[in-house]
Design a protein around this nucleic acid. Sequence first.
RNA 1: CGGGCUGUCGUAUACCGGUAGUACGUCUGUUUUGGGAACAGAUAGACUGGGUUCGAUUCCCAGCAGCCCGACCA
Length: 419
Amino acid sequence: MTNSMRQSKLFTKTRKEAPSDEVSKNAELLIRGGFIHKEMAGVYSYLPLGLKVLRKIENIVREEMNKAGGQEILMSAFQPKENWEKTGRWDGLDVLYKVSDSQGREVALGPTHEEIVVPILKNYLTSYKDLPKALYQIQDKFRMELRPKSGILRGREFLMKDMYSFHASQEDFEKFYEQMEGVYKTLFERVGIGHITYLTFASGGTFSKYSHEFQTITSAGEDTIYVDEGSGIAINKEVMSDEVLSQLNMVKENLVERKAIEVGNIFDLKTKYSAPFDLSYTDDKGEKHPVVMGCYGIGLGRLMGTVVEALADDKGIAWPETIAPFKLHLLSLGEDAEVLKEAEKVYESLEEAGIEVLFDDRAGLSAGEKFSDADLLGMPYRAVVSARSMKEHGIELKKRIEDKGKIVTLEELIKKLVP
RNA sequence: CGGGCUGUCGUAUACCGGUAGUACGUCUGUUUUGGGAACAGAUAGACUGGGUUCGAUUCCCAGCAGCCCGACCA
């Protein structure tokens, strides 16, 4: 899809009513707006508008991973059974999809890629000079969730960014890990939920300094976290205890309980996956050591759904500028020839200026329908060309999140929106 | 995986052991146009399989699918 689009040509249509089998706000609004299509429980297809959002999120993630020194790869979704047997997860991971072909060969559909990335590294990593390395990919993951729910927040197939880092020592890993904390913060700010996303201490089993989730406050969340607004840090309920509080220098009285959704995690793997595959390197003294690993995940679909959950109002979605499918929704109202001519002119000028614009040029719709659609679809800016706006010699410009617009000239409009 | 609920045009719903109705959508036409317009016409439906019955979309059983609560969630 190009930067601009006529709504009359867009193949999806909006719906007034939400499907009865969806309860979550993100699924309801995304389906009504024609962003996604449900295939089965926990499995969704992305339609033009939805894919545009997903790609924008993807690009932000990619940019940040590249900045952090990550190198992008794309690993296979089909994964050999032997690799999973080596780590004990063929039978140990109950979300694993196992498929077999007509020859009876069994393979796994990748729910995560430690079992793939580590053997790949074995081919190229031998010396301390080869370290550190960070590899990432953006790929569909498959997990047999017993109960998918909350629209695109928890699915059986979902797009995920997973990065794996490889280090000569725990110290080197920790340095990188701390850098990733900052990278993730920037990333969530860029997609528009930085203000409600908290670095959250979490861990299964023993408490570790190096297992963090990034939790975004939303009532649709599956997790309960305790937020210290002052420090901007939170603790997952799972690991909450007096001991943990004292380790973190946090005071119980300052904490607020919130529902939240995990939008990302960063993880200390130590040698859990390098050991079974004997991924090791030789140091400058000729001694062999296992490689220390970390992993860093972000579910992109979940991130998209979280943005919807967190920023939508009762009229519809309100996309942040950075990930909106289009920056501007241009509406022509009425069938008056002069108005239509003017709207066309405005559209072409915006297109020429390189502004991402969705032009609601559909004929025969009432103003109310066009306004409602604009609110539902949630572009950050809405511009109206109508008999009324022409009488005032301009274009009515309104932000999605504001109630009142104002009349601007075409030049002012372009100046405001030009990238 | 335990528990609960539900399957009727594309969507949302109604009625019924005996011709399946309405609204929205969609299509055609006319009139409308600043917050989901009006009229006329058209379109399209009982999850699957078995059982009971003269007759099942309706009752029973099984399967499948979906939703909700819980458990689980590298």
